[in-house]
Design a protein around this nucleic acid. Structure first.
Lengths: 378, 378
DNA sequence: TAGCGTCATGGTAGCGCTACCATCTCTCGC
DNA sequence: GCGAGAGATGGTAGCGCTACCATGACGCTA
């Protein structure tokens, strides 16, 4: 531990009032690119090379350096080369904060999701991330915890930063959130779901249709007393439930007692528990449509524990189609959702909009796909 | 769609050269707080209230407003009230970019993880997020994709922003990354693992010990030909393998043919596949220690498919102890890791350091816990 | 050859905030 | 009663960059 101590002095707060120290640390930033040409700079700033240093070295005006970096085609070949050489030599990196202040636009994508651990959102964020990784844009993450109020708070925090774009999960923003999004002055993409009246753009699919398709499949497979098990019950879950209900009603099979829900966050163990409860309530259940795969897995495990035959005695359908569903025993039918693709597409649309090429289609429905597997193959 | 169209004109690039439009959109930012007092401001900036506006309204100097907001105790009760009233009335929100430029410090935590979808890191990020949610700090996320080079690139991007702190996963940074971290001029916390020679601070546990403990447990439970199955094999996995190997060697049970690894990213289906391969190679296998729970679940499913009795014929131990392990059938033994707590603790340490209260203990080992379950109860 | 648009380049003036230093007012000790 | 010290407040001068406008050089048309 002592070794670590010795090797990094200076930055920490306890010497916060001691400018000497801070500067010493900052100067080391060069290290990489340049051999610490310590010009006695003014008090602040810490001495990293600035655009003015590059301009001086290249023998041009600062603004030309700025242009060479941002709009190379507007600077003559000659100067460009000279400037880039100077940039290299000094190890110059533009200060994103100064840039943001001067241009009133930060190179940041604000991303708001209701959960970081829910695999569905994690995959969407990954899609966003991957699509942005070779752009100059950074990602700022916000976790709304499924709360409208928290979403408002986060938008209030994100707004003043003047992000280049905002990507938000869901289409059920509060009126205040909607207003904040409209006022953000940047492209906005609502993801995960499609619906009428986008704030700006939308990428997702119909959860209602997903739920209905799943239920219809089970009905078709011969199940009759098909339960619905859902946790958390965010707006998307509600719509899946509505789709299930529509299908069940159309077949004359709906019964409110078939539905088991809870606001508690979803998990495999909760799925098992809820299924137990559902079975106690309705012993003649012959199938379950689970609001997501975690629940479905919980149901499957409970069936194993209780020696209930799947798909014979009970059929199971999940939602999202996580990787494990296809290798489970028996493999589990699920509705495959394009969550990674949603992330990618949302970025593509936002980037197009930033570039001034507004996509014609403002609402993109990426659909879903029912994966029929053993768990409903009666 | 048309409705959405009509309701948000102006920001998009196709009218980028048309300042009129942009300003119109920006002005709307007030809307919420104030009834659009459109003072004919200078060309840039879009007209949101600034600290100068607040100062004027409150009849004080701008710097006093700044202080009232950042160090309230340094401003008299009276002025503070007046200022806060003015802030409220104008709907003033400080511009984080201007703040960052002026103070040479952004209120941003840079977070670097190797994967966004791996539940382990997702939970750590969640811990970080939760600990930061009522602080002024924002989170900027970086995904290294398990690549040292990508980590370097990201540090190069994060550095110029002058983040308030950096939290990076792992302790195996490249020399360049280490240099960049040391030069960042802010607290740095390496998370997930502990080891000698921290860049600054560390929070994690010993993966070697975790692997050894798991293997020892299986040996103790009576298993003899215990395989190791691992995917991805990042440095942490390597150390778990080393721990397993140490335990096996100590018991005189090690055999290189027991080890099955692949650089391919981990998943449940891959776990099933690898186990199949391992079994084909070593039919007399009587147990497996899985590098993580996904693999373990895949093994469990394969056992079901192939009608292999668990724990009788084969014992299974996982790593991380995801929620599902305790409800699986049979429930699966696993090494519980404090990933959420790691996130929380890392933030606590970084915040302390920022406040100048450097924690005495620079390396914090949060340990792990072996959860014995049915899958190894022979 | 004059006149005009186009292109490459540069100067100036901020963007909105905070560090630094100066000033002013009180309180206290002797 | 006076100087020292502490606390509250303010003015000034940037932070590093880019928007805007100006300038000069060039090529084109008439």
């Amino acid at each position: 531990m002592a070794s670590g101590c010795g090797s990094r002095p200076g930055w920490h707060g306890d010497s916060g009032k001691d400018a000497e120290h801070r500067f010493a640390a900052s100067r080391r930033l060069f290290g990489v690119g340049e051999k610490a040409v310590i010009k006695p700079r003014s008090r602040r700033g810490g001495g990293r090379p600035t655009i003015a240093d590059v301009a001086r070295k290249a023998g041009v005006g600062a603004i030309t350096v700025s242009r060479a970096l941002r709009e190379p085609e507007r600077v003559s070949e000659d100067l460009r080369r000279q400037i880039l050489a100077a940039v290299d030599e000094l190890g110059y990196v533009p200060d994103p904060n100064a840039r943001a202040l001067a241009s009133a636009r930060a190179e940041v994508f604000g991303v708001l999701v209701p959960s970081l651990t829910n695999n569905v959102f994690a995959e969407t964020v990954r899609g966003i991330y991957d699509s942005l990784s070779d752009s100059p844009f950074r990602i700022q993450l916000g976790n709304t915890h499924y709360s409208g109020l928290e979403e408002e708070r986060l938008l209030q925090v994100f707004g003043p930063q003047r992000p280049a774009a905002l990507i938000v999960a869901g289409i059920d923003q509060t009126p205040t959130s909607r207003r904040l999004l409209e006022a953000a002055g940047c492209p906005v993409v609502q993801v995960m779901e499609t619906g009428p009246d986008p704030v700006d753009m939308m990428v997702g699919f119909s959860h209602f249709d997903g739920g209905r398709t799943a239920a219809e499949h089970m009905i078709e497979a011969g199940y009759r007393r098909i339960g619905f098990i859902g946790a958390r019950m965010d707006p998307r879950s509600q719509r899946r439930l509505a789709g299930y209900r529509a299908a069940m009603e159309a077949a004359g099979l709906f019964d409110a007692r078939l539905v088991t829900t809870t606001p508690v966050p979803s998990s495999v163990s909760l799925g098992r528990e809820l299924f137990r409860g559902a079975l106690a309530k309705m012993p003649m259940l012959d199938g379950v449509f689970c609001n997501n795969d975690d629940i479905a897995l919980g149901v499957l495990f409970e069936c194993h524990h209780a020696s209930i035959a799947v798909p014979k005695t009970i059929g199971i359908t999940g939602f999202n189609d996580l990787d494990m569903m296809q290798v489970a025993f028996p493999s589990v039918t699920s509705v495959r959702t394009p969550r990674y693709e949603i992330g990618r597409r949302s970025v593509a649309m936002a980037l197009a909009a930033i570039a001034g090429e507004r996509p014609e289609q403002r609402v993109v429905d990426l659909g879903f796909e029912l994966k029929r597997r053993e768990s409903t193959a009666r």
